[in-house]
Design a binder for these strands. Sequence first.
DNA 1: TGAAAAGTTTCCTTATAATGAAACTTTATA
DNA 2: TATAAAGTTTCATTATAAGGAAACTTTTCA
Lengths: 109, 109
Amino acid sequence: MNKIRNMKMMTLDELKDKHIGKVGTIERDDYEFELKVEILGEMIKSVRKERQLTQEQLGELVGVNKSQISKLERNTKNVTIETVLKVFRALKTNIKFTIEKLDENYGLV
Amino acid sequence: MNKIRNMKMMTLDELKDKHIGKVGTIERDDYEFELKVEILGEMIKSVRKERQLTQEQLGELVGVNKSQISKLERNTKNVTIETVLKVFRALKTNIKFTIEKLDENYGLV
DNA sequence: TGAAAAGTTTCCTTATAATGAAACTTTATA
DNA sequence: TATAAAGTTTCATTATAAGGAAACTTTTCA
């Protein structure tokens, strides 16, 4: 590892406006987001749409009822890591997380 | 936003060997990891140590008993997003997550 | 515009994450 | 090396995430 790479960042609004993908010239489908429960739902929905799946179809892949997918997308719950992984695995999407330490004055270390 | 930045990546082994920080010449405390429950615990412990806090002290900051911190660090549970956020917030550490879509053949899109 | 498909909500049940207190073990250190 | 501090485990309890079935609403499109 120790791989250095460029990351594009996107706000939730940008996600909503454009869905995922097609930003800039270098086609690279990596996006970084603040870790928030609300956004996770948006992400699931966006990727599912890209995959052209219905909630019912995604539910089959994940092994849950379509109502469960709806709930996850609409963030009716404070989801666990395992649930997040299960869904994104079904969507053939890797998830990574990044931590960024701040100093005492809340600036970057 | 739309900020472009360099990200260093590290494996769990590297984390274990070196704890966090001091890789390369550009001192930048951003690290990206596969989203896995086991690693989250390692991360909490590493950052707590860097902050020179005991589990009891971190517990006070988070508002939970020290045994809870121990459990989180040792990954006895499948943690929820909210719990992750609570702890890293206390550690003054931002968390972001990145998704990376794969194509049908499991290669990068 | 009406039927079918897709998505949402409600009402449940079950599984388990979150939590603390206290006993216990391990690690520092006087 | 005894004692204190730090960390872990156990045993409970409580809160809530996960889940399905079915009724309901919204969207799609022939």
